[in-house]
Amino acid sequence: MIYSRTAAGERFAATSPVCVEIYNDAPLSYLTATAHTLLAELTAHAIVVPTTTRTPAQYGRIDLPSGPHRYAVTSNGGAILVDGQPDPVWRDHIDRIGAAAGPPVGAVVDELAGRVNDSWVRSLRTADDLFCYLVVDTDQQPGDFVAEWRGWCEPRGWNVSQQGRKIYTMPNAVTKSAAVREVHARLTADRTLHADSVVLAAGDGVLDIDLLEYADLAIRPRHGELEETRWQHPEVAVTAARGITAGEEILTWFHQHATSTAHPDMTAAQRTSTCTTS
């Protein structure tokens, strides 16, 4: 939904962009003016659950027009925020299944650190004590690095994906779909959502695939990691637009499906849970 100036594309200036994230006293991320309005209006038709690989602190920098949201999913599903605060019950669950599935993040970071060097890696960071990622110079990055690193990780219950300058190393136990399924279960249990309500989702990277496949209907933009790998799914639509205007198209799609998938006994707010990734 949100784009840096670099990722926004050539139509950035023509979209009357609205800044929704400030970092180090400088504007960082934007919505188009139309997308800003559409996202605010969407909350009248659906429960919006922002879903992101960002940590809670990184997500907290974003000022979405329809916020604050009762629920958000951060840390790629490792954290569920309830009224802005990480839910300890969910985190305990993630920590337990992660410990049973493979080595801890510290051991993975140590192994990774021994495989990289400063000639092409700008930083190695640990996120929310759950996963790690590299920020790299893609021009200098060894062509076989991701494949070799994936070969070490996969037998140990971890996965690897690259999104632009970032290479993520993620435990298989941490997924967006599991966290969104939990949020949806809570919202149906307290009758905020009807039991037959649908889940709509959007995403553009490999770390979004499980969420896109879990959703009843989903959409991805015609750019990003999934476009580069030509990933397709019969229940996942693809935008015509690229860059920041793809966000407008996705939000228009959300509006159309949030109002057309209603069970006859549902109120407007009970129809749909929409999950937008960033």
Rank of each mutant, 00 (worst) to 15 (best):
I2H: 03
F145R: 06
P27H: 08
A35K: 04
A127C: 14
I80D: 04
D63R: 14
L42R: 09
T51A: 13
W149C: 12
E148D: 14
D83K: 15
L200A: 12
G67D: 06
W253N: 05
V180L: 13
N172E: 08
V160D: 02
T175C: 08
T51W: 02
R220I: 00
D208S: 10
T51Q: 11
W231P: 07
G247R: 11
T55P: 15
N117R: 05
H233L: 11
G9H: 03
T74K: 06
T267E: 13
D87Y: 06
V48F: 04
R220P: 03
P234C: 02
A189Y: 06
V105R: 09
F131W: 08
V82I: 14
S273K: 03
T138G: 14
D92L: 09
D129C: 07
D208G: 11
T138D: 07
I167K: 00
E10D: 04
R242G: 12
L134E: 02
S4C: 03
W90G: 11
R96H: 13
L193G: 13
E228D: 05
A8T: 01
F254S: 09
E41F: 00
G203H: 06
D92V: 06
V236L: 01
V198I: 15
Y30C: 09
A127W: 05
Y59F: 11
I219C: 03
A237G: 02
S278C: 14
H36Y: 12
T53G: 10
S16P: 00
L193I: 12
R271K: 11
S66E: 07
V108Q: 10
S119I: 00
Y214H: 15
V73G: 12
A189G: 15
H93F: 05
T32N: 04
A218R: 04
P86Y: 05
Y59I: 11
D265I: 11
E10C: 10
A40P: 05
G151Q: 06
H257A: 06
Y71V: 00
L212E: 04
V89F: 01
A101N: 08
E213A: 14
A173E: 07
Y30G: 08
L38R: 03
M170D: 03
T274W: 02
G164A: 08
D265H: 12
A14K: 05
Y168E: 05
I97C: 08
E227S: 03
Q162E: 02
T192P: 00
